[in-house]
Design a protein around this nucleic acid. Sequence first.
DNA 1: ATGAAATTGACCGAAGGGGTCAACGGAGGT
DNA 2: ACCTCCGTTGACCCCTTCGGTCAATTTCAT
Lengths: 204, 204
Amino acid sequence: MNEKFFTLPEEKRQSIINAGYRVFSQNTYKKSPVAEVASEAGISKSLLFHYFKNKKELYLFLWENCAQITIEYMTEYGCYDKEDFFEMLYSGMRAKIRIMEKYPYMGEFTIKAFYEEDPEVRDDIRKSYVKYKSFKADGALNRLNPDKFVPGLDLEMMHREIYMAAEGYLWEMMQKLPIDVEKMESDFTRMIEFWKSIYLKKED
Amino acid sequence: MNEKFFTLPEEKRQSIINAGYRVFSQNTYKKSPVAEVASEAGISKSLLFHYFKNKKELYLFLWENCAQITIEYMTEYGCYDKEDFFEMLYSGMRAKIRIMEKYPYMGEFTIKAFYEEDPEVRDDIRKSYVKYKSFKADGALNRLNPDKFVPGLDLEMMHREIYMAAEGYLWEMMQKLPIDVEKMESDFTRMIEFWKSIYLKKED
DNA sequence: ATGAAATTGACCGAAGGGGTCAACGGAGGT
DNA sequence: ACCTCCGTTGACCCCTTCGGTCAATTTCAT
């Protein structure tokens, strides 16, 4: 891929990347027209082929970029170094919302790419995935201190439940782009407050 | 559309329908090849065009069929006539799982069709949607009796929370087809038990 | 003005798309 | 044995789309 791409003004690079995520997230790899990416980014197809030597390279760049972005934001919002469970939840959510704000279709692209079956890219996707897998912020369950929660609570169920509700909410939001960042933050904050109110032990 | 389609053996009709849902759920209307539907259903393209006079007719039939199926299952599982909130949740879930079992891609197709922008079908989709809208099993919130729940609980939040968790779970399941009906039922049952345990007032 | 870099429109060959149609083959009637 | 009907198909048509190239034009710093 052409190094010139990285010297492009932020705005232009952004629009190319987002056009890519949009197109590839709504079509399979094979049926995603490079021309559509170009025109949506406001440049000619020829120029796009000037930055990326072919469709595959563009696609794989976008894929690698997902991981980069995610790690970058997660680090910035301190998702890796929170002690308290709800704190971690909160910062994770904020990171995710910011990503959605800047790259609305990245989430869907990630999933679609992960399950992509086209032999032209499948193996590269798989290979690159294991490389980044270790960055996942797992082990939140172990960090839960049972003393803080209502007695007898099934912590694993609670964790699953919260996780799924968050997924469900994000999924719902993704259906009707563009997203409303303000609303999402306040919705999520309310939800976390709600969870705290029912799951945390009352100290009275 | 050709009436002969309805006299087809159940199995064959099924496979055509499912092939249709699969293809149209993973591509936009325009980029869904009729030939792919046919070959996946195990028949020739010509024969498919014998049953449906063109692509649009096939697509709209599948769309109408979604509503039919949904209403049929919801009725069969008594989703419209349950009094208790958790009972309703349970029967709704069972209906949904059975649908997913028989028509794995119907859910995704419904959403995709709903947001389809292609001028060739958009208006028909919209029009047909309002026709069925009234069948939605709404108003579950009003049916909630606050006395049965823990004092001070925000019922609306609880409702939203449960709804989103269910969505999140179903979405997760849909990513890795084919579905495991047994597992889904037991997962869901456990989740409902969990919700009951934390939201319902303890009578001791 | 000049040369290099950025950017494009026109173009190409291949593939894929919706839809048609003549023909095939088997079941049933005579 | 022959005909007829009908479910079914493969080959075909014509048009569009796609990935990728390239010569030509525009932009811009010097």
